[in-house]
Design a protein around this nucleic acid. Structure first.
Lengths: 200, 200
DNA sequence: GTTCGATGTATCGGACCGATACATCGGGCC
DNA sequence: GGCCCGATGTATCGGTCCGATACATCGAAC
């Protein structure tokens, strides 16, 4: 999960840990996702051990990302991580591997969704539908609780269920819209959508 | 967190692990909360070590909960856990101890909220306001991302932020309503609210 | 010149999850 | 009768991730 997120961000540009964390919480944080250093650094080491990222500046002297990265001077500390070719492959693999963990957790789905621009259309659809099914299940569960036990629960518990149910219904509607757009080949939201190429 | 949830449920009636887990996911599950046995059983042992719950049927031969618990025959397995007097104290302590962890996590807030009926009014208000502040912070963060970076993000990432922002706004509104009701002394939602007894 | 907040790297203990392994029981089915 | 199967039920293990914490550097404010 975290691996996918990190690879995805490093795919765009090399970064050091601090910056990486900021991006993780802002760009991917929308769907409840916050990462602590206690998981970031171990994961970075894991990725390094797998040969998917490497420490140090980009492979050959490039000046493209000059403004993105504050450009480490030779000083001390400040470790910049760069994705390797194997890392890019790994990223693509993880992107299309949409198992149950992709639908189950908020975070998992959020991360996958954030990289949809680089995910192939069929996988996108698969993930959206899987997620929808999952949320629908939760919704049904809460409906049951509300209808069967309306009398046996105190007001607060009841209100909690009611709010949860509403959130689920909203999310299902949102997903349904996304799925419809996906089938049309339209991009999600904006007024003027250009016809995207039809790969696969 | 889990300790609080378990003590709260056992406070209502003794239960065995399986039933406990079901209740945890249905009654408290609304605000994204699912528990696995891998955390349930260790926590039960922790609670037992602390003397807050005890194994076996309720202290003295009571027949009140006959229909609630499937009533273990002498067979095998089937361990029923009962809350102790110290456990009840502990429960009250945890209820009023509303630290940052109460506001930060969905689950933490959900559990506390589910037991609001047994929480004193001032603590309720404190928790609701703390939670609101937290959600407002997240909301502002997302607003910033959306306004500053609207051009630099792809459609999907943008849509993710948009959806997240909307969810935050909803939750803030919900909390605001609850806070207002709390100040009025009204119970949360229903049309005709009877004046609740004012217990300690 | 020194205090302070932002930037930055890193670890440790512990909470929690997912998978898994069992064992028991009541039915349905051949 | 014998069999399997799904629901009920207890329990552990490895691993992921979190929260707290410790440091070190740097520019700006005072």
């Amino acid at each position: 999960m975290l691996e996918l997120a990190i690879l995805g961000l490093l795919h765009e540009s090399p970064m050091h840990g601090y910056e990486l964390r900021k991006q993780l919480t802002t760009k991917l944080g929308a769907f409840r996702f916050a990462i602590s250093y206690g998981s970031l650094y171990p994961t970075l080491r894991r990725l390094q051990a797998g040969g998917w990222i490497s420490e140090g500046a980009p492979p050959t002297g490039m000046s493209a990302s000059t403004e993105e990265v504050p450009l480490l001077t030779g000083k001390r500390g400040r470790v910049v991580y760069t994705i390797t070719a194997e890392g890019k492959e790994r990223f693509q693999d993880l992107l299309s591997a949409a198992g149950p963990e992709t639908y189950d957790s908020e975070a998992g789905f959020g991360v996958h969704f954030a990289f949809f621009a680089r995910t192939d259309p069929s996988t996108r659809l698969r993930i959206l539908e899987g997620r929808r099914r999952r949320v629908e299940e939760r919704r049904e569960g809460m409906r049951d609780v509300l209808s069967r036990a309306a009398e046996r629960l105190d007001t607060y518990t009841l209100e909690l269920q009611r709010h949860g149910l509403e959130a689920c219904e909203r999310e299902v509607r949102w997903l349904e819209e996304l799925i419809a757009n996906e089938r049309n080949g339209t991009t999600p939201q904006p007024p003027s959508a250009q016809d995207p190429e039809r790969s696969s």
